[in-house]
Write a protein that binds this DNA or RNA. Structure first.
Lengths: 216, 216
DNA sequence: TACAAAATACCCATTTTTAGGTATTGCACA
DNA sequence: TGTGCAATACCTAAAAATGGGTATTTTGTA
């Protein structure tokens, strides 16, 4: 695949020089995408090619047609970036995945990533982190309290103002099931109000603001 | 209105130059500075020149030697950006100051700014906000949807996930009063769910997304 | 195959919201 | 000086949400 060779472990030697690193940036914030890309491209001693994606569809396409060495992705990308599922879909051992930390993120959600980059990292810091991840090997799983597909679907209807009964009717479920889902959502997120859920859904892009504006 | 124009059809303005807008970006995060600058420079229908500064010293120097039309600055810039003091030091009537909202910010800290830009604003949104701040002149109220001040205040707490009882305790009111306010809000807006109310509040800028994120 | 998680469903009791009514006080404006 | 509205407060009743429990079926995976 890529021309970049991760020549084994612990090469203390100056990184890269063995070719261009291809970095994918997946974040819904255009400001972050462009800013991070600009910094990466200007890093001295690194030859970096950047591909930006703003949506999960674009990321899928990118993974299909590109040879990504490092994926930098917001933990909130596409609602919630399921890194475990992603790694199963794209079982590339050499692929490193870096979290872009911009807003509040649960500590647990960061464990599965090979590295974190936050908004206040400067060029030096980012360069150093790049050096680190290009040298290390393994990463292990950590089970997160993540939302299931159905739970995310339920949240979508809550944000649109549906009552539990209406959600049940829409999805052909018993209202008890909907209530159970909502109870599990509350437990996992520790968010106890519809308003809070709405904020969560917007911030984590489970729904689009423009998409729900019509429904209120 | 100002002389600044999209599409170059500017007419006699009160500001110095027609055509190009000079924007200063003051933020300690290089990612945000560069990302915001990249987006601004690529905005269609706008001609924008950007000056980036990372420190308060650089900002002072910039204000001395440059002709800034809009200053975009993080409320946390240099620890805390004292906008009142800044306006006294540089009494430029035409200077617009925009907050760059990246982390949690107190609502009060944003009031003094002419506009806010947050990380999740896309090009369109930023373009729209630019148009807004360059227009302010006849920006008087277009007769609000008749929501009273108290009602808007109540909505703020609803969005933050407060129950009616909690709102009553916070505002030293009877819960009956809070319920009455909420009934009137529901009647005026025809929005019958907390989720819908939350969307309304965000869209209509009664609350800032960045401000409530911390409360959920 | 066996296990874990997800999705489904129901029970209970309590709290909260919604929706209708009414009523008093104070303030602004014509 | 009266009219209208905002803000306050209370009553009742129904609907909905919340928080705790348990249990079955399905599904994916070790």
């Amino acid at each position: 695949r890529t021309g970049y060779s991760r020549n084994g472990k612990g090469k203390g030697g100056k990184m890269k020089t063995e070719g261009t690193i291809h970095i994918g940036i997946a974040d819904s914030s255009g400001i972050i995408r462009m800013g991070l890309a600009a910094i990466l491209k200007r890093l001295p001693n690194w030859s970096i090619q950047v591909t930006e994606v703003a949506t999960t569809e674009a990321l899928k396409h990118c993974m299909k047609v590109q040879d990504i060495d490092i994926l930098m992705v917001s933990p909130q990308f596409g609602g919630w970036f399921n890194i475990r599922e992603f790694k199963q879909t794209y079982p590339l051992e050499e692929l490193k995945i870096v979290a872009i930390v911009s807003t509040m993120v649960n500590e647990n959600d960061l464990k599965s990533f090979d590295e974190n980059i936050n908004l206040f990292d400067d060029s030096n810091s980012i360069s150093q982190k790049l050096a680190t991840i290009m040298n290390i090997e393994e990463s292990e799983e950590s089970s997160q309290d993540s939302l299931s597909q159905r739970e995310r679907e339920i949240i979508g209807y809550v944000v649109k103002g549906y009552t539990n009964k209406e959600i049940a009717e829409t999805l052909f479920l018993s209202i008890h099931t909907v209530i159970t889902h909502r109870r599990n959502i509350t437990r996992k997120l520790q968010i106890h109000s519809a308003a809070g859920l709405t904020i969560y859904a917007i911030v984590n892009k489970i729904v689009e603001l423009s998409e729900v504006k019509m429904n209120i």
